[in-house]
């Protein structure tokens, strides 16, 4: 899926993560919650892939599954040349330093009874044999890297603000020099003015250490800022994946179009002129997904074929993938008519 030469750092093929539902007195297996249902994507070295979607679409589950925090149902995941989809726990543990995670809620992901130095130093204790002073030196380096004052090393998480706590979480993720970091809504719990600080920090660190990010977020405007390529998820599937500017300027899938249209514009004049696509209804349950296209229950363009046949996720332009029956085959064939369509709102 990558257009650049060489192997992508992360390769995901046909990833499925189903959670079984048990019911009745015999706890019979009555169905599955298909949180992630057959997704494939590549993440190139030192790029940021944004993964966007509404709550419950499976983006966080996908992020966790890619790091093998779950035992996946099906599919393959290759990180830096190693297939990790089926390796056992002990082996996985040795692979962990390469891939790390930054969590959404910095309050819940930091142990309240450990000092900052303890939290940031814990991965070093687990995975490296350093002396106490070497470890402290490394903790100080990391604190400098994320912009925390060294004198805070002996304080506890509750003494910090949300933005600073997120910095502690980032320092911990960086401790083992990872190549790949999954950022699961790292800014969702922060204030607007603090969000920008953390996003800038993530960008600086990426440049400094050559990091590769999978940036999971529901904030489309922030993803536009940080990501190089963007994947849009809906009900466990990727409906569109494209380079950032392509996706934001010429969204092809009706869901992406509706999602972008729903984001309010911080400009009263333009906002008043803009025409919104208002989707009706809610996202169906992932345990009982519709037949055919997952989006057919809310899609303004849905026709009979959408309720019968699941559209294939395919490349419609160079690097631009989407899963919709009406893209690429019928009216939207080349770039020109689509660009024209964008002009009349």
């Amino acid at each position: 899926m990558s257009d650049t030469g060489g192997q992508p750092l992360v390769q995901v093929r046909g990833l499925k993560m189903h959670f079984p539902i048990y019911a009745g007195i015999f706890r019979r297996h009555v169905g599955d919650i298909k949180a992630v249902d057959d997704i494939s994507l590549d993440i190139n070295e030192s790029e940021t892939l944004g993964l966007v979607g509404e709550s419950g679409c499976g983006k966080s589950t996908a992020g966790r599954a890619v790091l093998r925090l779950y035992d996946i149902t099906d599919g393959s995941i290759t990180v830096d040349g190693t297939d990790i989809s089926d390796v056992d726990k002990e082996k996985l543990r040795h692979l962990r330093p390469k891939m790390q995670m930054i969590f959404q809620d910095p309050q819940a992901s930091l142990n309240p009874r450990m000092t900052v130095a303890g939290i940031i130093g814990e991965p070093l204790v687990e995975h490296m044999s350093l002396s106490r002073s070497e470890r402290l030196e490394r903790v100080y380096q990391l604190m400098d890297a994320v912009g925390l004052n060294r004198s805070f090393a002996d304080r506890y998480p509750h003494e910090f603000s949300g933005g600073q706590r997120q910095r502690i979480g980032i320092a911990r993720a960086l401790a083992l020099n990872p190549k790949f970091i999954v950022c699961d809504e790292p800014i969702a719990a922060l204030d607007v003015s603090i969000q920008a600080q953390v996003v800038n920090l993530l960008e600086d660190l990426q440049e400094q250490f050559g990091l590769t990010y999978l940036f999971i977020s529901h904030d489309l405007s922030m993803v536009r800022h940080i990501a190089d390529r963007v994947a849009v998820m809906y009900l466990g599937k990727i409906v569109e994946l494209a380079p950032r500017d392509d996706l934001y300027e010429r969204p092809l899938h009706p869901y992406t179009q509706a999602l972008l249209s729903a984001v309010p514009e911080p400009d009263p004049v333009r906002e008043a002129e803009r025409k919104h696509i208002i989707l009706t209804g809610d996202v169906p349950s992932p345990s009982n997904a519709p037949i055919g296209c997952n989006f057919c229950t809310r899609c303004p363009r849905a026709e009979q074929i959408c309720r019968e046949i699941e559209p294939e996720f395919r490349q419609v332009e160079k690097g631009h993938y989407t899963a919709c029956h009406f893209v690429g085959d019928t009216e939207i064939k080349t770039a020109e008519p689509t660009a024209g369509e964008r002009v009349k709102p």
Binding site: L220, S221, R224, Y248, V263
Partner: peptide, 14 residues
């Protein structure tokens, strides 16, 4: 500080 989904994209957030 607010980024937008439309219009020009700044290289760095204020």
């Amino acid at each position: 500080t607010v980024p937008s989904v439309r219009g020009s994209r700044t290289e760095r957030l204020r």
